[in-house]
Design a binder for these strands. Structure first.
Lengths: 196, 196
DNA sequence: CTCATAAGTCATCGAACGCTGACTTAGGGA
DNA sequence: TCCCTAAGTCAGCGTTCGATGACTTATGAG
């Protein structure tokens, strides 16, 4: 028996909710499921979060926009791929939060969240790199690639991409990013003081 | 009042089911929704299809693998993009069937369907074109792009890609496909006897 | 027209859903 | 130790879900 601790209980609910919502989507997840997973009474969900919807919003709120903008510009795409491929997303049921949220994309709220996140994390950052007339379109095309890689990895589970690490993708990333952005792009992220 | 016609009623149910399941996913769609949309009594769903699940299977059964393999090999990717971007998917609620099925990807059955479809439609066809050591990986990377473009268009609804026609993407498709496959690829589909 | 049959309707089931208000219990300050 | 308060429990509400079986009605063959 654990001690009574409001914040710890809240955290356990949030963690279980994140995993359930990621793996099974909003509709297929019941508040009773989340309560059972976390070993917490279901009614506390409403006491602490108000409603299932508000729990979803808080559980899937992207608390972690990784430091994509830090580092050399020519490594931006490589850093994006690393967050999609190498990052540990076990907190989100092992799937990239964006891919996970696609499962709940029947609801307009979730769609807007996805839209905002994709634009903020990928398109906006890439548009600056893509110079020329249709910079927006090329930035979106490269963003589409990132999202597609995430989808094929964790939803479609296609053989080669599922097992691939970011390093395996590096040469291809460099080629495509360079071709699409019209400027030389690196496929790998330079690690300070790390042996090559 | 329309005449009693088993096949016509079945077809109306299938059509309504396709649109509902595509737009809102499996869980957010109730058999009563489908019945209301099609103006048919809900119990006929179980009489004609057995269960909601079997209706879903039949409604989303890909009856249309477009003739992707017909035509010049160097136009294969361009043909794929056309089916994603230019094809009229109003029968599926205006969204590409694969993207629509992603909404139901919480269920393992749907995931397997998606996996089979992606592999059959995209990866298998592209692997032949990608010569060299990691042909499989490059085929999957290009497939990921196709899927990602579909997702950004209809789920994320990013501005430039949503409005784009296949012709707008042509030069970029040619560039990326050529770079990834290591052989010259066309960005457009040559139309027989059609003025350029 | 008759009427057997197939097409469509109706009432309703049990289970699961999100959610609520009244209740019980643990735990630290006095 | 007492006891007030906050943390956690419990029974159950109203609704909706997928699904069933008995019923009614239209329709075409004879």
């Amino acid at each position: 028996m654990q001690k009574r601790d409001r914040e710890a209980t809240r955290a356990r609910l949030l963690k279980a909710a994140r995993q359930r919502f990621a793996r099974e989507g909003y509709d297929a997840t019941s508040v009773r499921d989340i309560a059972r997973d976390s070993g917490v009474d279901a009614t506390l969900i409403f006491r602490y979060f108000g409603s299932k919807k508000q729990l979803f919003d808080q559980a899937t709120a992207a608390d972690l926009p990784p430091d994509l903008l830090e580092g050399p510009r020519e490594e931006l795409v490589a850093r994006m791929v690393r967050t999609v491929v190498d990052h540990d997303w076990t907190e989100y049921g092992g799937e990239h939060p964006l891919v996970a949220m696609l499962r709940s994309s029947a609801h307009e709220d979730a769609r807007q969240r996805i839209r905002k996140e994709v634009c903020r994390t990928y398109v906006d950052a890439l548009r600056d790199l893509a110079e020329g007339e249709d910079a927006e379109l090329r930035a979106e095309l490269l963003s589409a690639w990132m999202v597609g890689i995430g989808v094929l990895r964790s939803v479609v589970a296609t053989p080669a991409l599922s097992d691939a690490r970011a390093a395996d993708l590096a040469p291809h990333i460099a080629t495509v990013a360079t071709a699409l952005l019209g400027r030389p792009m690196s496929g790998t992220v330079d690690q300070k003081g790390e042996p090559g």
